[in-house]
């Protein structure tokens, strides 16, 4: 992932940034990768403004809301990101993308990833994982989705009955599992 066109200083394109997760793991990532996370970028830029001398690897950026396991997956996703954001026009490409989205496994994992991506303000990741989660909800019964995501139905029984009647048209022909 070269960004030489943006960065006049070629040496800094390979500069590393150290991120510290909630469980005190240290991650050394390429600047280009770290800059995908707007929260990190903002922090990094603020740091740069504050202290010109403190640059690159000397800065450790704390991410108290992100666990190391999640960050590792986000970074690996980030590295896989295509260079160009070409729109998937044809059907085949859309199918491959769908398959790719399915790889991110359990809903809990996805929620972790989304939560972290949201905290890091990582736009592409948020787009991708949210879509992956949406794939899971699509055309599924209420019971399935509740079970899948551990949502507790907190409506009163009569209330729920009322809504179900009201939104009956939204439940026509959904898969039961």
């Amino acid at each position: 992932m070269s960004n030489t066109s943006e960065n006049p200083n070629p040496s800094s394109s390979s500069a590393k940034i150290t991120l510290k997760t909630s469980d005190n793991e240290l991650f050394e990532v390429e600047e280009a990768v770290a800059m995908k996370f707007c929260t990190v970028k903002q922090y990094f830029e603020d740091e740069k403004d504050n202290d010109v001398a403190a640059r690159g690897s000397s800065t450790v950026i704390p991410l108290p809301n992100v666990h190391s396991a999640v960050l590792a997956r986000l970074i690996s996703y980030c590295k896989k990101l295509p260079q160009s954001n070409a729109v998937a026009d044809n059907h085949e490409e859309e199918e491959t993308k769908k398959k790719e989205r399915k790889q991110y496994g359990t809903p809990g994992d996805l929620v972790d990833l989304i939560s972290a991506a949201n905290y890091l303000d990582f736009k592409e990741g948020l787009e991708f994982f949210n879509q992956a989660l949406a794939d899971h909800i699509q055309n599924k019964s209420v019971e399935y989705v509740r079970k899948f995501f551990g949502i507790k139905g907190d409506f009163e029984p009569h209330e729920e009955e009322k809504y179900r009647e009201e939104y009956a048209w939204a439940f026509e022909g959904v898969d039961e599992d």
């Binding site: 989304i114 939560s115 949201n118 948020l126 949210n130 879509q131 989660l133 949406a134 794939d135 909800i137 699509q138 055309n139 599924k140 209420v142 989705v145 509740r146 949502i151 507790k152 139905g153 907190d154 409506f155 729920e160 809504y163 179900r164 939104y167 048209w169 939204a170 439940f171 959904v174």
Partner: peptide
């Protein structure tokens, strides 16, 4: 905000269907 974003990927029918998941 994020939940809304997730719903934005769904056909409206399914998005509306989530309304009885919980309050």
């Amino acid at each position: 905000k994020v939940l809304c974003h997730i719903l934005s990927f769904l056909p409206t029918k399914y998005a509306v269907g989530t309304s009885i998941l919980s309050t």
